[in-house]
């Protein structure tokens, strides 16, 4: 009697486990099908290459695409050297002192702070205290703090996998430490650095809360080559910001789904890239 009852409860729990596991797939499919079906009709060459303008009668996200790329480039320009440098310091210079504990703790805290707090801090510090105003540069500076832990951690992991023999060999042959780092360590750790960078780009593409009060929401394209530099100091909304505005204050769901479709494609490409790289990274480690 008892045995039978137990088996029935076992079956119920098994069913729940399978259902839960299927839920993730169903949710993903639901999101993909919904976004693609509503967004695909919206996305065409004009949508990607023009700027929304009532006068010209165009609806497009070219300005937002440009802003997103500019913010990615600016953020990574700072984050990569700082993040890689910090990881090198932690792994190669600092030994096991207190300073390593402090920096690693700070990195961990930084990765646990939600993006809205970064946005708030960016607004208080870069926009107001430093007087940069709502501009792409303020947004990029804010994002550096947000994605720095990703780059530091991935570089550190990669550095840990470089065999000690490489270091001793180079030093033994008379190379200085910096020379050894430059010519041996950084190239060996490259896959890890690139993985960290791509993960960081993924976070920037999907970021919205940290940017809404720092980078602003303008959607115009820069005028000419020099305009690109000016654009750094002007307000500029990324794709996610435009999606948010389209879906809320502007009530333009067609554009919102068009952007959602574009974002999904970017996110999936980034996911495939990181997977490919981690795989390659793993095989080099096993050799």
């Amino acid at each position: 009697m008892i045995k039978k009852r137990r088996r029935i409860s076992d079956q119920i729990i098994k069913g729940l486990i399978v259902l839960s596991a299927l839920l993730s797939i169903l949710l993903l499919l639901l999101i993909i099908v919904f976004v693609v079906s509503k967004g695909i009709g919206q996305v065409n060459w004009d949508f990607l290459t023009t700027v929304t303008s009532v006068r010209k009668g165009t609806i497009g996200i070219a300005g937002n695409i440009f802003n997103t790329i500019l913010i990615i480039v600016l953020t990574m320009l700072f984050t990569i050297p700082i993040g890689v440098g910090a990881a090198i310091f932690l792994n190669e210079y600092a030994g096991k002192g207190k300073i390593v504990t402090v920096i690693e703790f700070a990195t961990e805290v930084l990765s646990g702070i939600p993006s809205i707090i970064f946005g708030l801090f960016g607004m208080m510090f870069f926009v107001e205290t430093l007087g940069l105003g709502y501009c792409i540069l303020s947004g990029a500076l804010t994002l550096i703090l947000m994605v720095l832990p990703l780059v530091i951690r991935n570089t550190q992991e990669a550095l840990k996998t470089v065999p000690d023999g490489y270091r001793q060999g180079a030093i033994g042959l008379g190379a200085g430490k910096w020379y050894m780092i430059r010519t041996i360590l950084i190239p060996s750790a490259m896959p890890g650095i690139i993985t960290g960078a791509i993960l960081a780009i993924g976070r920037i593409v999907g970021e919205s809360a940290a940017l809404i009060f720092t980078a602003g929401s303008a959607k115009l394209l820069p005028k000419g080559i020099l305009g690109v530099f000016d654009k750094m100091f002007e307000s500029g909304g990324t794709l996610t910001i435009q999606l948010y505005l389209s879906a809320t204050s502007e009530g333009d769901f067609d554009t919102a789904f068009g952007i959602a479709y574009v974002l999904l494609i970017i996110v999936f490409i980034i996911n495939i890239l990181t997977k490919y790289l981690t795989k390659r990274f793993d095989t080099t480690r096993q050799k």
């Binding site: 993730s24 949710l27 993903l28 999101i31 976004v35 993924g202 593409v205 999907g206 970021e207 919205s208 809360a209 996610t240 999606l243 948010y244 879906a247 959602a260 974002l263 999904l264 996110v267 999936f268 980034i270 996911n271």
Partner: peptide, 8 residues
């Protein structure tokens, strides 16, 4: 699912 932006 983890990679999908929150606005979506």
């Amino acid at each position: 699912l983890a990679a999908i932006p929150s606005v979506i």
